[in-house]
Nucleic acid binder design. Structure first.
Length: 194
DNA sequence: CACCAGGCCCTAT
DNA sequence: ATAGGGCATGGT
């Protein structure tokens, strides 16, 4: 559900998905399934904060969510209208919303608005560092690296990001499980362990 | 008990 | 420019 993804993109900032889904359940229970963006925007920041409490940082995120919803209101919460905006311009607009940074913006673009942009997250950075010893600090530097290597295909970018997260989560944890990792033969970090 | 989780903004050097 | 602090819940 694209609407839930937009909300979830803000709620998941530095937070695990399990807590986020609880928060979203609260919202759905309180507001119903349809037109959730419009209804959420109409709530007070305090009420919103109460509902999203399980997601953590709830006061902060309530403000950020409200700011994003106010932006969407200018499009009458019509995601098809948003999609008709050129990707670059849309990304810029999203980044002007207070509380929406690059990862949040790109997650919305890729998973809610069907734009083939590469999403960089902490897992991506960790994987690049572990696997190839590539230590890029700049977000856009990493994004451009992937986008220059892969054709702009929506399904490809969605799957690629998903696979990166899945792999990094499973194997590139704090205490790396390199011995179980299917990529260990090609991994810089694993080779350093011995 | 300590540490972590799919960031972002603000402030102080 | 960039490092550091704050934001907060729930799981391991």
């Amino acid at each position: 559900m694209p609407e839930e993804i937009i909300i979830g993109a803000v709620l998941t900032q530095n937070t695990n998905w399990k807590n986020v889904s609880r928060a979203i359940e609260n919202l759905k229970k309180a507001l119903g399934e349809n037109d959730i963006l419009r209804k959420a925007e109409a709530l007070s920041t305090e009420k919103l904060a109460e509902l999203i409490r399980p997601a953590g940082f709830f006061n902060l995120k309530a403000k950020r969510l409200k700011a994003l919803l106010a932006f969407l209101k200018a499009y009458d919460f019509d995601l098809n209208r948003l999609k008709s905006v050129p990707t670059d311009a849309l990304r810029k607009s999203l980044l002007e919303v207070k509380g929406v940074g690059k990862e949040t913006a790109d997650s919305i673009l890729l998973y809610a608005l069907d734009k083939p942009v590469f999403v960089v997250d902490s897992y991506t950075k960790r994987l690049l560092k572990r696997l190839f010893n590539i230590d890029l600090q700049g977000y856009d530097e990493i994004k451009n690296l992937f986008e220059s290597e892969y054709p702009p295909d929506l399904a490809l970018y969605q799957e690629l990001h998903g696979l990166i997260v899945e792999h990094a989560k499973r194997y590139c944890v704090k205490r790396p499980k390199c011995d179980e990792c299917p990529l260990q033969e090609n991994c810089y970090y694993a080779s350093q362990l011995k």
